[in-house]
Design a protein around this nucleic acid. Structure first.
Lengths: 139, 139
DNA sequence: ACCTTATCTGTAATGATTACAATGTAGTAT
DNA sequence: ATACTACATTGTAATCATTACAGATAAGGT
């Protein structure tokens, strides 16, 4: 189940390999749905009933510290997590609550170092109504 | 104390005028520091000891619904509020925790309607180390 | 001044996240 | 293989922002 892939990613970053870390990383890679910590917890608990929610938070914390996952705070009430791959931006549908990926070419990041601040992360957050909700398909 | 200004703004938007709404709106206009709800509550409670924090939340809720204030979720743990004036972006210093305004000209917003989504809000969120912290001045 | 309706207040509940102490586990040296 | 050490995991309890709710209060129209 691709275990070598995720083992390699963790090792390359100097993160000790544990089954829980592998599972969280694999879940985020396979499910690009910007899940909450609780989403991840409930999904992984099916195959690992002894999993603790604290562990999920701990794992997400270390993965984000090493830049393997991105923490999204777009929705306000809870954090969402995203496997970090190619650069993309996020769009929150205020109707169905989903976050969808969008790709913007015009977003110029290199005009950044304004006023001497050192920019380490760039997030483009957009809100509105997604295509499906506009069509009346709903969430 | 500029009461007419804020009374006018509320009236123009069809929002019933109350002392609490005037105070919150005035505070946000005069203090462009992206305060939390609790910051606002503590500041206004000095002159109005009977103020309730629920009222602060209610007022912020209605002001944001009418587009008079912007809700920032950049810092994750708590919402921050910003008087809505000229378009600008936000930069969170991960060292001192402050949010500072930045102005980006290259940020192309009109290349937006991608894949049929209807974009209603655009937020540019940037993280890094602010000028003061880089200089060792600290927060 | 009265009435209706919306607002304000304070307390209690909720829900996400964090703190912490005890248990378990991986890797290493003996 | 055994013991050691350090770190990870677990579960419970605490924290903190936010929301729900019910009673008191105030605003605008008659």
């Amino acid at each position: 189940m691709d275990t070598e892939k995720y083992t390699g990613i963790l090792r390359e970053n100097g993160i000790k390999v544990t089954p829980q870390r592998l599972e969280v990383l694999r879940f985020l890679d396979k499910n690009r749905i910007h899940p909450t910590a609780d989403d991840i917890y409930r999904a992984l608990k099916k195959d690992n009933p002894s999993l603790s929610k604290t562990t999920v938070y701990n794992v997400l914390d270390i993965l984000s510290k090493y830049g393997l996952v991105e923490v999204l705070t777009i929705s306000g009430t809870e954090s969402r997590y995203d496997y970090k791959s190619t650069r993309h931006q996020h769009f929150l549908c205020t109707s169905c609550g989903r976050i969808v990926d969008i790709h913007i070419k015009g977003l110029c990041m290199d005009c950044m170092p304004e006023k001497g601040h050192k920019v380490e992360e760039v997030h483009g957050y957009f809100k509105g109504t997604c295509r499906d909700c506009l069509k009346g398909v709903g969430g």
